[in-house]
Amino acid sequence: MCDTCGCNITDGNAHLVKPGGKLSLTASGNEAVSVLRSLLHENDHAAAHNRSHFDEHGVLAINLMSSPGAGKTALLEATIQALGDRYRFAVVEGDLETENDAERIRRHGIPAVQITTGSACHLDAHMVHDALHELNLDDIDVLFIENVGNLVCPASFDLGQHLNVTLLSVPEGDDKPAKYPVIFRVADLVLLTKADLLPVLDDFSPEKAEQNLRNLASEAPLYTVTVKSVLALESWLNWLKAEVKAQRARVAKGETSQPAIQPEGAALHESSPL
C-alpha cells in the first residue's frame, strides 16, 4: 500500500525476537507469536502516509494541542492575519460537534475542513486523511491541524504532522505540564497563551511553568504570547517562519521530519535495520 515508509515492523524487529524464530510453543502447547508492534500500528501507517503526502506537496503540517479554550483558534486567526500575505494556510479543525471553528477560519478567506468526531476525544490519522481529500495540497504552504481540545488523548495518536505545538493558557495554571506530562513531553514548542492576563492572574509564574516543562526532560522552546498584539506574537511567528524554511529545505533534499519525541512504536520503526 504505502511505498514510502516500508513499515513491516515484525521483520524489522526480528533481532528483538528470541533465538529460534518468532514462533515458539508455550507451556500449554499454544503457538506464541511474537509481535512487538505498536498497538496503533494501523494509525501509524496512515500517519506515515499523510506525512508523505505533505512532503510530496511541500506542505508543513503542525498539530496544535491544548485543553479546550486555551486559544488555539484565536492563535490561528492572529497568525493568518500576521502572515497571510506570506504563506498559504489551511486548517483542519477537530471538535466533537459544530462547524464553529472552521467558520471562524473561513472568514479570513482560508480553507478549513471541520472534522466532527461525535464523542471521540482525539483526532486520528485516518480522520485527517479523509479531511485531506477536501483540500488541494498544492495550494498550501502550512497546514494546521487543530486537535480536539483535550490534554490527554491527542498525545497518543500520530497524525502525520511534522511538529507538535502544545498551548498552555495562563488561566489554566502553571502546573499543567506536571499534571499532564504526556502531552507536554511530546511538544516541539510550548506556547503560554493569554499572557495579557498575567497581571490579573498573578499566581501564574511563567518560570514555574518552564521548570515543570524542563522536569519532563523537554528541550522545547517556551514562548509567552498573546493574540492581543502582533508584537507579543513575534517569537511564535519567527519560529513558524524558520520551520517553514526548514521544511522547504527538507523537501528540496527529499527528506522528512517528525516531532522530536516519538512513541516507542515509531522509534522501533525508525531503527528498523531492513
Binding site: 508455550t26 500449554s28 499454544n30 503457538e31 506464541a32 507469536v33 511474537s34 509481535v35 512487538l36 508492534r37 505498536s38 498497538l39 496503533l40 500500528h41 497518543s156 524542563r214 522536569n215 526532560a217 528541550e219 512513541p263 516507542e264 512504536g265
Partner: peptide
C-alpha cells in the same frame, strides 16, 4: 534535566498465544 527516555512510553503488542 537533559535526559533520554530508555523505557516507559511503550504501547506495544508483545505477543499473541494462538489456539
Amino acid at each position: 534535566w537533559k535526559t533520554r527516555l530508555i523505557s516507559g512510553d511503550e504501547m506495544l503488542l508483545e505477543s499473541v498465544e494462538l489456539i
